[in-house]
Amino acid sequence: MNVTTVMLVSGLILILAGCIELIRTHHMLKIIIGLELAIKAISMFLTLGGWLNGNIALAEAFVVTVIVLEVVVATVLSGIAISIYHKHGNMDIRNLRNLKG
């Protein structure tokens, strides 16, 4: 098993873990953690792509941009989660039942 395969497999496991966390959890902050986990693995894939193709500069630019965007998304998501916490007193997504149909 070479380095590429190891990185691909471990990255896929991380992404799968992130997605499962995101789908199965009832806690809003855990959704953010799931997203962060998956995006860390994606940063690894982007670095791997740069390394395999001899274009590490481009990969660096991609990874830095992804980090910035992920932080912004996490901030907005936690902002909304905190506002919901002020309304309901907890962060359980099962409280979100007003809109149906």
């Binding site: 992404i15 992130g18 997605c19 995101l22 789908i23 959704i31 799931g34 997203l35 998956a38 995006i39 994606i42 894939f45 982007l46 791997l48 792509g49 740069g50 395999l52 193709n53 001899g54 274009n55 481009l58 990969a59 991609f62 992804v66 998304v73 998501l77």
Partner: peptide, 20 residues
């Protein structure tokens, strides 16, 4: 957030293969 994970994973796979 789920869409972001899907899209970024897809893009990184394409990047690994095509280099750009």
């Amino acid at each position: 957030a789920l869409a972001t994970i899907f899209i970024l994973t897809g893009l990184s796979f394409l990047f690994i293969k095509a280099g750009s």
